[in-house]
Amino acid sequence: TFYNFIMGFQNDNTPFGILAEHVSEDKAFPRLEERHQVIRAYVMSNYTDHQLIETTNRAISLYMANL
């Protein structure tokens, strides 16, 4: 899942690491979701930090390219 992918960046001092920290603390994050459209919609609806949203979009693109 995307959640498992992004958790691989925990403790990294990178934008993906920052995203992983936010996702791990977000109890409502769709952890079992595999459809990138649902993940993107969730982030757009629940996150207000523009940098975090952009990082999510980049992470989703990388995740999709590696499926």
Rank of each mutant, 00 (worst) to 15 (best):
residue 14 T to K: 03
residue 51 Q to V: 13
residue 28 A to D: 14
residue 58 R to G: 05
residue 7 M to L: 10
residue 29 F to T: 08
residue 19 L to Q: 02
residue 26 D to M: 04
residue 39 I to C: 02
residue 25 E to Q: 15
residue 15 P to T: 07
residue 11 N to M: 09
residue 52 L to F: 05
residue 42 Y to R: 01
residue 64 M to C: 11
residue 21 E to H: 15
residue 44 M to Y: 12
residue 47 Y to N: 01
residue 50 H to R: 13
residue 44 M to D: 07
residue 51 Q to H: 12
residue 41 A to M: 11
residue 63 Y to I: 06
residue 45 S to Y: 08
residue 56 T to Q: 02
residue 49 D to I: 06
residue 61 S to W: 11
residue 61 S to F: 12
residue 16 F to K: 01
residue 38 V to C: 12
residue 61 S to L: 14
residue 22 H to M: 09
residue 23 V to M: 10
residue 47 Y to H: 02
residue 43 V to D: 01
residue 39 I to D: 00
residue 41 A to W: 09
residue 23 V to L: 11
residue 10 Q to I: 15
residue 53 I to L: 10
residue 25 E to D: 09
residue 6 I to Y: 05
residue 49 D to Q: 06
residue 22 H to L: 10
residue 41 A to L: 11
residue 8 G to S: 14
residue 40 R to E: 08
residue 15 P to C: 11
residue 24 S to G: 09
residue 30 P to N: 02
residue 1 T to K: 05
residue 62 L to H: 06
residue 16 F to G: 01
residue 59 A to W: 05
residue 27 K to V: 11
residue 40 R to M: 15
residue 12 D to Y: 10
residue 23 V to D: 04
residue 13 N to H: 09
residue 10 Q to F: 13
residue 34 E to F: 15
residue 60 I to Y: 05
residue 31 R to T: 06
residue 50 H to L: 13
residue 55 T to V: 10
residue 17 G to A: 10
residue 5 F to R: 00
residue 58 R to I: 11
residue 48 T to W: 08
residue 43 V to F: 07
residue 27 K to W: 08
residue 41 A to H: 11
residue 14 T to V: 03
residue 42 Y to P: 00
residue 27 K to I: 12
residue 40 R to P: 00
residue 7 M to V: 06
residue 34 E to A: 14
residue 13 N to Q: 10
residue 31 R to A: 05
residue 59 A to M: 08
residue 49 D to C: 07
residue 25 E to L: 15
residue 67 L to F: 10
residue 20 A to K: 06
residue 15 P to W: 09
residue 34 E to L: 13
residue 59 A to F: 04
residue 11 N to Y: 12
residue 66 N to G: 13
residue 26 D to P: 03
residue 5 F to W: 12
residue 45 S to A: 15
residue 38 V to Q: 08
residue 6 I to K: 00
residue 39 I to N: 01
residue 18 I to H: 10
residue 51 Q to S: 13
